[in-house]
């Protein structure tokens, strides 16, 4: 099975078994290991990527289902060595420890704030309830996302000022 999709702005090709999940395709076929796999049954959210603008669990999608789509992973959130405003807010608030769940939380928050730049704390908590973090207790994550909202206001879509 061979197909193409757009990954972080570049066209990529996948050729492999139909049973390959999008998560495994990204990690093991395309070498983009920033997307993590924490449960493979759609609960933990570590594998969250953005497909055609919406945050989805890449373990609950076959790679072939992404054919022709635009996929954004954590590697696509910032340019070069610099942190995006969202990533910088995570560092400022110490919103990560082991960092394993972090890519999925960043992609989720990025999608959320892109659609809803004024999401309030309750909304952020509800959305984040689909991502398990075992280290931080979530408080600093919520604070970081609240802090990062400014970078999404006025259609800035999380770009540095």
């Amino acid at each position: 099975m061979a197909l193409q999709f757009t990954l972080n702005g570049k066209t990529v090709e996948f050729s492999g078994e139909a049973r390959t999940t999008l998560a495994d395709c990204l990690r093991h076929h395309l070498g983009q290991t920033g997307t993590h796999v924490g449960c493979e049954h759609g609960v933990c959210g570590a594998c969250t990527v953005i497909v055609d603008g919406e945050a989805v669990r890449s373990c609950l999608m076959l790679a072939v289902q992404a054919e022709g789509s635009h996929v954004t992973t954590v590697e696509g959130l910032s340019e070069g060595e610099d942190l995006s405003p969202l990533q910088a807010a995570f560092r400022k608030h110490h919103a990560l420890q082991c960092g394993f769940c972090t890519p999925g939380i960043l992609t989720t928050a990025h999608a959320l704030l892109t659609h809803e730049p004024d999401a309030d704390e309750e909304r952020i908590r509800h959305v984040l309830s689909g991502n398990i973090c075992r280290c931080t207790g979530y408080l600093p994550i919520i604070e970081a996302i609240l802090d990062a909202r400014a970078a999404y206001a006025d259609g800035r879509r999380g770009k540095p000022a």
Binding site: T48, E54, A55, V56, R57, M61, L112, H126, L128, G130
Partner: peptide, 9 residues
């Protein structure tokens, strides 16, 4: 029903 990411698909 479920969570944000699941609700998107």
């Amino acid at each position: 029903v479920a969570h944000y990411q699941v609700r998107n698909r």
